[in-house]
Design a protein around this nucleic acid. Structure first.
Length: 568
DNA sequence: CGAGTGTGCGCC
DNA sequence: AGGGCGCACACTCG
């Protein structure tokens, strides 16, 4: 049973029951409906979860509904996040011919958070189409939108895959809220110790002692007493005055050069970065009551990866992971999927040779064993190059050998790149499609094709096309990997719930962290081994959901630990 | 003075 | 001369 929720006035909520598979009629005739007070919602949801057979809650935005329910101690097993699903169905090539996809943009296309709207809708490289202005007449109701989405899926070229994608995306929305609710167990005292060890004690003002000493040292060695090492132009000038022929102040470039200042400068950069990104200010802002609670944004990236807002949760540096510590009597199960993206590519391409290389062992070692390359490092750089579109350097040179050994896998990414270069969309395993190149794309390409095009026009157009081709090349892999990760997590969430039925979220094993191909579960010690098994079983299940019987494996390492730093 | 852009670097 | 992000700081501009 679907139970649709929407606001029906000040402090009131309307709940509408829609039987499964009845949502395609475009009408909600025969559907039961009930009005209730908003403050009675949590009790209502709790009761339905207990009474109904696995109800699926349908609402506009999980981030708007679910936090209050969790705060009231109510967990939801399944939902449909109409806003996230709408975005997928609007863009998917599988639903391109449906009314939902061909209609002009409406309020369901709006960005959820008004403050996010201010963000520019383009990047330096690729200007995407700005959202069209919203119609004044209000938005389609929740039942109408739900019916339109069901109709679009039913009329799509692959309803099974899309249904799976929408279910996984919606489960991700629930998990994102639950992650923030639970928080990552985080020891502020350990973090402070780590910072103090590396930087010196927290200063009341100004730089910590270790940084201050490094600045002094750098200034002396460059004979620049007033140098601000945080200013790239200043620093570059000072370096050149001292005879260091750098063209930028990037660490990787400085590392190649020989000069007494290089070592302290690199150490300064590293530590300065730690201080500004994850120093005491970060600790004060983001860690409360022993928990780090970042704001996850499922579906926040075009490829379907998650984004975060604030706290930089997806960039928690290795330096501070020792502060992530399980509560007394609890353990962390730290799990990550080994070589996820190459294995996803294997499944996408149906490449039996590469599946064999990854069977029962490290995929890169398997590639070495196949004879394609001599060393693991080469296998890795070649695979990454194939997925990211490297054309030069070692990676570029290895491509022909990779291509000979694994023609299907390489052909798949090459074809995705060619499609992007033509300005076409590409689509992930379950049906998420890339955006079309927007902004100046058409004008630039037309200028190069016109009768009076100059050499420069053509160069610009070629370069733009290649840039977009690298994006679509990576999109098919990254987006499909994100789908695998969602299926993995959704399956794991179900298994964790089953380990301790009826328990509140934070009293039983629960997810506390997610990082693209990595999860952390916080669990009572006694259940830790069962959790680790669940993590592995969920990965197998995710592989079957995406690739059926095709024999590509998705090994995960699952480590039971007290601290995040112990894993890896 | 605030808003927007560029640089650099952390994560996958 | 390599895909996707977020964030802090320096810097520029109105």
């Amino acid at each position: 049973m679907h139970i649709l929720l929407e606001r029906s006035g000040r402090d009131m909520v309307r709940a509408t029951w829609v039987p499964v598979a009845a949502g395609t009629s475009g009408e909600s005739d025969g559907a039961r409906s009930e009005e209730l007070r908003a403050d009675a919602l949590a009790a209502f949801v709790r009761e339905c979860e207990a009474r109904e057979e696995r109800p699926r809650w349908v609402w506009d935005d999980t981030r708007a509904w679910y936090p209050a329910l969790l705060a009231a101690g109510v967990r939801v097993e399944r939902c449909v996040d109409l806003r996230l699903c709408h975005a997928i169905l609007r863009g998917s090539t599988l639903t391109a011919a449906t009314p939902l996809a061909t209609a002009p943009a409406g309020e369901w296309d709006a960005v959820a958070e008004p403050e996010a709207e201010a963000a520019p809708a383009h990047t330096a490289l690729f200007e995407l189409d700005a959202p069209e202005p919203q119609p004044a007449g209000g938005r389609r109701s929740v039942p109408d939108e739900f019916a339109a989405q069901e109709a679009a899926v039913a009329a799509s070229t692959d309803p099974r895959r899309l249904r799976l994608l929408l279910a996984a995306e919606s489960a991700g929305a629930l998990i994102g809220v639950e992650l923030q609710h639970a928080g990552l167990p985080y020891r502020a005292d350990r973090h402070d110790e780590l910072l103090t060890e590396l930087l010196g004690p927290r200063p009341a003002y100004g730089r910590p002692a270790v940084l201050e000493a490094l600045v002094h040292d750098i200034r002396e060695r460059l004979d620049s007493p007033d140098l601000n090492p945080d200013s790239p132009p200043d620093l570059l000038r000072a370096l050149q005055r001292a005879g260091v022929m750098a063209t930028s102040t990037r660490s990787w470039e400085l590392r190649q050069l020989q000069h007494p200042v290089i070592d302290p400068l690199l150490r300064y950069k590293k530590l300065s970065r730690l201080l500004t990104a994850n120093g005491w200010t970060w600790l004060d802002a983001w860690v409360r009551d022993g928990r780090f609670r970042p704001d996850y944004v499922p579906g926040g990236v075009v490829t379907g990866r998650w984004a975060t807002r604030g706290g930089g949760a997806l960039q928690l540096p290795k330096q501070v992971r020792g502060a992530v510590v399980a509560d007394p009597g609890w353990k962390l199960v730290v799990a990550d999927a080994a070589q996820l993206e190459p294995r996803i590519l294997t499944g996408l391409a149906g490449d039996q040779a590469m599946a064999a290389a990854g069977r029962g062992k490290d995929l890169y070692e398997g590639i070495v064993a196949s004879g394609a390359v001599e060393e693991r490092a080469q296998a890795k750089v070649a695979m990454l190059g194939a997925m990211y579109g490297a054309t030069t350097g070692e990676s570029g040179r290895l491509m022909p050998r990779l291509s000979r050994a694994f023609p299907r896998a390489v052909r798949l990414v090459e074809e995705a790149a060619r499609a992007g270069e033509r300005g076409e969309k590409v689509t992930s395993r379950l049906g998420r499609s890339s955006p079309r190149p927007g902004g100046s794309w058409a004008a630039t390409q037309a200028a190069a094709a016109g009768p009076e095009s100059t050499e420069a026009d053509e160069r610009r157009a070629r370069s733009q096309a290649r840039d977009w081709g690298r994006f679509t090349r990576n999109f098919v892999v990254q987006a499909s990997a994100a789908e695998w990760a969602l299926c993995w997590m959704a399956e794991l969430r179900n298994r964790l719930t089953a380990l301790a039925p009826g328990e509140p979220l934070t009293a039983s094993p629960h997810l506390v962290y997610f990082l693209h191909d990595e999860v952390i579960v916080h669990t009572p010690e006694a259940l830790a081994d069962e959790v680790a098994s669940a993590v592995r079983a969920s990965a197998e299940q995710a592989g079957r959901l995406l690739f059926g019987v095709f024999p590509v494996e998705f090994p995960v390492t699952a480590v039971v630990a007290d601290s995040y730093a112990e894993a890896k």
